[in-house]
């Protein structure tokens, strides 16, 4: 959806480069297992897709002659370090196994939970949020939110399905969207363009 917006409108207005780069970092840290484990064709294709789209978005926003001029750097002020440092520390302390790939995987789970924050802050500052941006954020939130249903199903049907780190992070991630979803639903019901209160 985001690539569609950027390519079709030649603009990344209202999109946080910080969030996009954090997602690229999330996917790099999480999908290192592409090199040493195979789960299914679907799983591999999606991992490669996420990596490719994340890097493509960052490339457009940073380097495309037209698109990069529409990036509002002054408004996208969230500091990377405030998200990366706590997540890295937490991953070093709270993990299932103290190995490089497992700690990086855990770091990616924590970082993904909060990676939307720069985007949410930017949107709060944006007067006219376009529909594609609002829909993109809604879909991103719904994506992990729907996982919760899947986790409940797997918990009930699979014997050794215990993933506390993933579950707590996923619920926290979904909760961060609660406020956004509330206003998204209000505006959708009223058939209005999304506006977030300051």
């Amino acid at each position: 959806v985001l690539l569609l917006k950027i390519r079709a409108t030649r603009s990344c207005r209202g999109i946080s480069l910080k969030t996009q780069e954090l997602y690229a970092l999330v996917f790099i840290c999480r999908y290192l297992d592409l090199f040493y484990s195979y789960i299914s064709l679907y799983n591999t294709v999606m991992k490669v897709t996420y990596l490719a789209t994340a890097f493509s978005i960052v490339r457009y926003m940073r380097f495309d002659k037209v698109v990069r001029q529409t990036y509002d750097k002054e408004q996208d002020t969230f500091r990377y370090i405030f998200l990366i440092a706590p997540c890295a520390l937490l991953a070093l302390v709270l993990n299932h196994r103290f190995s490089p790939t497992e700690v990086l995987w855990t770091f990616s789970i924590y970082l993904e939970a909060v990676a939307i924050l720069p985007q949410l802050v930017l949107m709060q500052r944006t007067q006219n949020i376009d529909n594609l941006t609002a829909n993109y954020v809604a879909l991103l939130g719904a994506y992990r939110g729907f996982y919760i249903l899947n986790w409940i199903y797997r918990f009930a049907t699979e014997k050794h399905y215990r993933q506390w780190i993933v579950w707590i992070s996923g619920v926290a991630q979904t909760a961060l969207y609660a406020d956004f979803f509330y206003y998204y639903a209000l505006c959708w019901k009223a058939n209005q363009r999304l506006q977030l209160p300051a």
Partner: peptide, 10 residues
Amino acid sequence: AQLLQDHDEL
């Protein structure tokens, strides 16, 4: 119980 499984989710 098997604590460490393959990370089969995305």
